[in-house]
Structure formats: structure tokens, C-alpha cells
Simulated assay, not measured.
Amino acid sequence: MAKAIAVFVGDQGETAELQQPGKVVIYQKHQGEWRALREKKFTLGEARGAGELRGAIAQLVNFLGECKIFTALSVSGLPYFELEKAGCCVWEITGKPLDFLDYVLAKQEETFEVAAPAGITAPEPEDLGDGCYRLSITEIQEADTGLTSKQALQPILRQGNFAKLEVICRHVPPWLEVETMFGDLMCVAEKLGPGEERVIISKK
């Protein structure tokens, strides 16, 4: 859906935490103006356990349809993971929708327009044998290589062709902590030295 943004708002018409009762409003820009297309009341308050939370977020994703930009005051834990897994770009922002929709759209378009420099490819993991691999993302985290840690790691995690993946990094990427917390993988991090950590990722 072109130029559409979903916003979770509370009673005062400002962004609210997704864990609070509120409603999801989908806005679309038409001829230079933002208009509310549709809205739906939404709450996670009665959802108990991971299964019910996933079900509630699945209903939310179904309501969003082709709209893949979601904003709220705060989105964390399993809801964040499920929205991201469904292909949504999640923004945490404070205020009334009409005050920030143009800003979010501009930043989102910048993200899509930035291309990786010519010749830049994701690093290949080193095969250690017996289904074990090692990959360093230190350079990606230290310099502007045109790649992000997510672009380098997520294809490997999605394929799942490993028993153990050792990742050398400057710090554990926050998105990885969320993914392993609520997904099918687990990770153990250890500090190797100043500004260097090792993360062992394996299947639960």
C-alpha cells in the first residue's frame, strides 16, 4: 500500500504503548494530505502466554494488510518480533500522527533508496566442520560498509543450515537478542576482550 502508515493511538489521540488498550489507525497520503483510511480497536491486555500473543498479533497483521509501516509509543518483546517477522518496519515515536507521519515516511523512503556500494557482499561464514560455522561482523559494526548486521546474519539464520554458529562482534545486536528470545534459536554471549564479544547461536 503506497504511502500508508499504521499508528497505534490511545484515548488522547497520541501514540500509545502496544501493551495498552487503544486503536490502530491506518493513514494514507493522497494529494499531499494524510487521511485515515480505517481503524480498529486493539488490545493485548487479555492475551496470556506466547500462543495467545502470537494470535493477537496475527489478527493485527491481517488488519494491516499491505501496510508495512507500524508506529507506536513502544513495541517490545514478542509483539515486536512477530511484526518484524511479518515484514513490518516498526517505529517507536511520541506524539500525534499528523505531527510525525511525513517524517516517518521520509525516513522510510531514505532506507529503501540507499543501496549498498558496488561490490559489497555479505561475508561468508567459515566452515569449522560438524555443522559448526564462524562469522565475524566486527567490521560491519565498526565501519560504514553498506551492510548491517541484520543483512549479514539473518539469511544464515533463516536457512538454518548449521548446528552451531559462532559470531564475533563488537556488541550483540539488539534485534538478535529479540529473535533468539522468541524464535527457534538460542544464543549465549561471552566477552572476549575490550569491545569484542562472541555469540554462540544454536537451535533450541
Score class of each variant (00 low, 15 high):
Cys88Asp: 03
Cys88Thr: 03
Cys88Gly: 01
Cys89Tyr: 08
Cys89Lys: 15
Cys89Ile: 15
Trp91Asn: 02
Trp91Ala: 00
Trp91Thr: 03
Trp91His: 10
Glu92Asp: 01
Glu92Val: 01
Glu92Ile: 00
Ile93Phe: 08
Ile93Ser: 04
Thr94Lys: 14
Thr94Asn: 10
Thr94Cys: 00
Thr94Ser: 10
Gly95Asn: 03
Gly95Met: 01
Lys96Ala: 12
Lys96Ser: 06
Lys96Ile: 02
Lys96Thr: 09
Lys96Met: 08
Pro97Glu: 00
Pro97Gln: 02
Pro97His: 02
Leu98Lys: 14
Asp99Cys: 01
Asp99Asn: 08
Asp99Glu: 13
Asp99His: 11
Phe100Trp: 09
Phe100Pro: 04
Leu101Ser: 07
Leu101Pro: 06
Leu101Arg: 12
Asp102Ile: 03
Asp102Thr: 00
Asp102Gln: 07
Asp102Trp: 02
Val104Ala: 06
Val104Ile: 12
Leu105Glu: 12
Leu105Cys: 01
Leu105Val: 02
Leu105Trp: 15
Leu105Ala: 11
Leu105Asn: 01
Ala106Arg: 14
Ala106Leu: 11
Lys107Gly: 11
Gln108Ser: 12
Gln108Gly: 05
Glu109Gly: 01
Glu109Ser: 04
Glu109Arg: 06
Glu109Phe: 00
Glu109Trp: 00
Glu110Met: 07
Glu110Gly: 02
Thr111Trp: 09
Thr111Lys: 15
Thr111Tyr: 13
Phe112Ala: 12
Phe112Ile: 09
Phe112Ser: 11
Glu113Ala: 14
Val114Asp: 07
Val114Met: 11
Ala116Val: 03
Ala118Phe: 11
Ala118Tyr: 11
Ala118Gly: 07
Ala118Thr: 08
Gly119Arg: 01
Ile120Leu: 12
Thr121Trp: 03
Thr121Asp: 05
Thr121Leu: 10
Thr121Gly: 05
Thr121Cys: 04
Ala122Phe: 02
Ala122Val: 09
Pro123Gln: 02
Glu124Thr: 13
Glu124Gly: 04
Glu124Trp: 08
Glu124Leu: 11
Glu124His: 07
Glu126Pro: 03
Asp127Val: 09
Asp127Glu: 11
Leu128Arg: 14
Asp130Cys: 07
Asp130Gly: 01
Asp130Pro: 03
Asp130Leu: 12
Asp130Asn: 15
Gly131Lys: 09
Gly131Glu: 08
Cys132Ser: 12
Cys132Pro: 00
Cys132Lys: 15
Cys132Ala: 15
Tyr133Cys: 02
Tyr133Ile: 07
Arg134His: 14
Arg134Gly: 08
Leu135Ile: 13
Ile137Phe: 05
Thr138Gly: 11
Thr138Pro: 00
Thr138Gln: 15
Thr138Met: 14
Glu139Phe: 10
Glu139Ala: 14
Glu139Asn: 12
Ile140His: 10
Ile140Asn: 10
Gln141Lys: 02
Gln141Asn: 04
Gln141Gly: 06
Gln141Trp: 01
Ala143Lys: 15
Ala143Met: 13
Asp144Glu: 15
Asp144Phe: 13
Asp144Ile: 08
Asp144Lys: 13
Asp144Tyr: 09
Asp144Cys: 13
Thr145Trp: 06
Thr145Phe: 07
Thr145Tyr: 07
Thr145Val: 08
Gly146Asn: 10
Gly146Gln: 12
Leu147Ala: 07
Thr148Cys: 05
Thr148Asp: 06
Ser149Val: 09
Lys150Asp: 03
Lys150Cys: 06
Lys150Pro: 01
Lys150Gly: 04
Gln151Tyr: 01
Gln151Leu: 05
Ala152Trp: 00
Ala152Asp: 01
Ala152Asn: 03
Leu153Ser: 05
Gln154Tyr: 08
Gln154Asn: 05
Pro155Met: 00
Pro155Thr: 04
Pro155Gly: 04
